[in-house]
Design a protein around this nucleic acid. Structure first.
Lengths: 148, 148
DNA sequence: TTGCGGATTAGACTCATTCTAACTGATTGA
DNA sequence: TCAATCAGTTAGAATGAGTCTAATCCGCAA
C-alpha cells in the first residue's frame, strides 16, 4: 500500500525539483511516494506496478522519466547489479549494497567514513574519484527486514 | 595485434578448462589470447573484432560462449559499470575498478588485504559475502597506461 | 483566452544479450 | 572402418530493459 507523502517528504521533493528548475507533478509525487513506502530497492517495473494502484493511467515512460529526474536532482540513487534491471533507492546516506544470492533482495549497508577514507587511499596519485560503488554478493541469514 | 599464447598461458587455459570438464578449442585459444594481448577490459564486441583479425570465421555467439566459459571456470572476471556493455578482465588478483569519466577507460586498482578486511567488517552479523565489487568513477590524470 | 513550455503518453525503436536449432568435427567403441 | 555420440560452433531469431519520438496535455503568465 502506498502511503501518501508526509509534509516533510513533499517539501523535500519540491525543494530538490525546484533547485534544478523542474516541477512537482502528481506523477512525480506518486512515484516518489512509492519509493518511500517500501524501501526495498524496486525495479522500474515494480515501481510502475505499485504506482498504478494509486494512479491507473500512469505510463511506464513516465516512471522512467520520473526516476531519471529524481536521480539527476540527487533525490534517489540507482543501484545496478551485474546486468539486472536497475533498482532505485531513496537512501542518500553513503552506503554499500548487499545482494542476497538466494532471495535477490538488496540490503543497505552503512558505510562508516573511515572505510570510505581507506578506500580512497588506495587510489594511485592522479586518480580522483567522485563516486564509489560497493556491492557485496552473498547470503543474509535471519533478518527479514528489507532495510534501506 | 594479437599475440599467440605463451606456453604458460596455454597451460593455464588448458588446466582451467579441463578442471571444469571442458575442452581447449582454437576459438577459445583465440579469444583468450585477445584478452591477454591488450589488457584494457574490452567489451564482447571489441573482443569479437580483435579476434576476427586472427580468425575471420569466428562468430559473435562463440565469443559470448567462450567468455562465459572463462568466467565460469574462473579464468576471467566480468566488469559491469552501470548498464554499459559488460567488459572482461583476465586479472584474477583482488582488485577494484576505476572508470575514467572522460575516456571511459577502466583501470585496475590493487586492493590490499587490509582494505578488504575493513570492508568485510562493516557487514552486520548474519551477512556473509563471497564477492565484493568495488568501482570508482572519476578522472585519471596523466597515466596513459591501460593498466590491468 | 491564448500561447508557451515543461510534462506525460503510447508505441516504435535500439541494442546487448540469450536462445534455438542446425551443423561440425573429434572421439569412442562396435 | 564406420556409425554414434557429444561438446562446441554458428547464424539468425527472440528477448527485454531502456530510450526515443511525436503527439497531446496541462498549468501558468501575458
Amino acid at each position: 500500500m502506498i502511503q501518501s507523502l508526509t509534509h516533510l517528504d513533499r517539501e523535500h521533493l519540491q525543494e530538490a525539483l525546484n533547485r534544478s528548475g523542474q516541477k512537482v507533478t502528481t506523477q512525480r509525487e506518486t512515484v516518489f511516494s512509492v519509493l518511500l513506502s517500501e524501501r526495498d530497492h524496486p525495479t522500474v517495473d515494480e515501481v510502475f506496478n505499485r504506482a498504478r494502484e494509486a494512479m491507473p493511467g500512469l505510463s511506464l515512460a513516465t516512471v522512467y522519466n520520473c526516476l531519471e529526474t529524481f536521480v539527476s536532482c540527487g533525490l534517489v540513487r540507482q543501484v545496478n547489479h551485474e546486468r539486472e534491471s536497475t533498482r532505485y533507492c531513496p537512501n542518500l546516506a553513503p552506503h554499500a549494497h548487499f545482494r542476497d544470492k538466494e532471495t535477490g533482495r538488496v540490503h543497505d549497508i552503512e558505510l562508516p567514513p573511515e572505510v570510505i577514507k581507506s578506500l580512497r587511499s588506495i587510489l594511485p596519485p592522479g586518480f580522483d574519484s567522485e563516486v564509489i560503488e560497493i556491492s557485496f554478493l552473498g547470503r543474509a541469514q535471519g533478518k527479514e527486514s528489507t532495510s534501506n
